[in-house]
Design a binder for these strands. Structure first.
Length: 422
RNA sequence: GUGGGUGUAGCUCAGUCGGUUAGAGCGCCAGGUUGUGGCCCUGGAGGUCGCCGGUUCAAAUCCGGUCAUCCACCCCA
């Protein structure tokens, strides 16, 4: 291994050509997918005011407590690298008044997010999310459509989804009532909880429900769950969401212990899971957040959305990555004048729509031919003093293993190659 | 932040009860074909054995530390 002086920062890996190609493919698929569903792209900056996230995501969340990359600019502004995509979108929607009263806005985004967590399979410190946010649509059918869009998007990515899990946390009143019930329950077992759950009990009680500790899970077997505490409106909303999913013919399971880490969720929450990601099973997740816009000082605006992790999509993806572009033509120079001539020919071949290149790093003809073959080139075009004297180029069809000559002009060459390729 | 695994050639890896010039496959380069690929044959280049320190006559090998990476906890997309 070469000892390099500099390395990329932990958790912020370079996207090598094969991966970059895949990501570009995903972005293309997403763009056409969202366009068909009436969503428009919105790109927000990577840096935002720190306060934006502490307000939206919640002071008690790990993201805000210890995972944000924080900096102060020359004007003394407290900035952070965005740890998630929803808060910036909400900010932009309000700033530019993208949702007129009584109207809706459907927006999607793609871009890097940053969290200072420790790395592991499916978890990086800089990671890309593709997400959608739908403002102004309050009924349960919008939830069902959003979950449906999430499922269809991952299908378009050829991602293998093992489970679609849904749950309801209830509206504000239900959540408050539930939280009291849960804390009361936990108090009875306070001594037996794992260290993490003891802390969760104080900070964010809901999170105990998805604790991985077996002893804790045994205790929680008969703990109250949010679904049991739903009031009538929330109950009806959730039932309708489930009916909507049936209409869409989306298989799903109700996971009563599904909770989400961000404070802004209300009523519907959901996760799409794959078994291919190691411990990080969630490829995509989202939910309803009806009070977030208002808490940012905007008009009461219901909203629902989701975000998918691109790195996790890549891990769970079944499709073969798109093939690399293979050259149509490699110019083989037999002497120095031919190298110079090739410079111009290759340029004109590209202008004519062909993939063409010359291998300056290869010395002998043999090496250049080998290189052309390894790149998967269809044709090798050879030029030396003999050809120059007769004003022709020798063209070798590397697939058919035949060789012929063409007049030494790019136009004649392109014409001949097109005819042979058809 | 915590725990465990791993760090030897461009890549995948062998080699560790300490002992001469550290190996293989693939890849790369050259030749076998005066100017022509895929197969085959021959030869060659390429390594601070992650880094620092310790033990020893002698360290890739043992010990300590450190960094990186992977997996897991935590958290979440």
């Amino acid at each position: 291994m070469a000892t390099t002086q500099y390395r990329s920062v932990k958790g912020m890996p370079d996207l090598l050509p094969a991966e970059a190609r895949q990501v570009r493919e995903l972005e293309r698929i997403a763009a056409t997918f969202f366009e068909k569903a009436g969503f428009q792209e919105l790109r927000t900056p990577i840096l935002e005011a720190a306060e934006l996230f502490s307000r939206a995501v919640g002071e008690s969340s790990d993201i805000v407590r210890k995972e944000m990359y924080h900096l102060t600019d020359l004007g003394g502004r407290e900035l952070v690298l965005r740890p998630e995509g929803t808060a910036p979108i909400v900010r932009a929607v309000l700033q530019h008044k993208l949702v007129a009263p009584g109207e809706a806005a459907r927006l999607w985004y793609v871009g890097p997010m940053f969290r200072q967590e420790n790395t592991q399979k499916g978890r990086q410190r800089q990671f890309v999310q593709i997400g959608a946010e739908w403002f102004g649509a309050g009924g349960p059918w919008a939830d069902a459509e959003t979950i449906g869009l999430n499922v269809r998007l991952l299908e378009a990515f050829s991602v293998n989804i093992d489970a679609v899990e849904v749950n309801s946390l209830g509206n504000a009143a239900s959540r408050l009532a539930y939280r009291e019930k849960l804390v009361g329950f936990l108090d009875k077992y306070a001594e037996q909880l794992c260290a993490d759950c003891k802390e969760r009990r104080q900070l964010n009680p809901l999170r105990v429900l998805d604790c991985k500790n077996q002893q804790c899970q045994a205790i929680y077997a008969d703990a109250p769950v949010p679904l049991d505490a739903l009031d009538e409106p929330s109950r009806q909303h959730f039932d309708a969401v489930c009916q909507g999913l049936e209409t869409l013919r989306i298989e799903f399971v109700v996971n009563a212990r599904l909770v989400r880490g961000l404070d802004y969720y209300s009523d519907t929450v959901f996760e799409l899971k794959s078994s291919r990601l190691g411990a990080q099973a969630t490829v995509s997740a989202g939910g309803r957040y009806d009070s977030l816009v208002e808490s940012f000082g905007g008009p009461p605006t219901p909203a629902v959305g989701f975000a998918a992790g691109v790195e996790r999509i890549l891990l769970a993806r079944e499709a073969e990555p798109a093939a690399e572009m293979t050259p149509d033509v490699v110019w083989i120079a037999l002497d120095e004048p031919a190298r110079r001539e090739g410079l111009g020919v290759v340029d004109q071949l590209r202008a004519g729509g062909m993939v063409a290149l010359q291998l300056f790093h290869k010395g002998s003809v043999k090496a250049q031919m080998r290189g052309a073959n390894q790149l998967g080139a269809r044709f090798a075009v050879l030029c030396g003093d003999d050809e120059r004297a007769r004003a022709v180029w020798a063209v070798r069809d590397l697939q058919q293993r035949e060789q012929f000559e063409v007049p030494a002009t790019p136009e004649a060459l392109i014409r001949e190659l097109r005819a042979r390729s058809a």
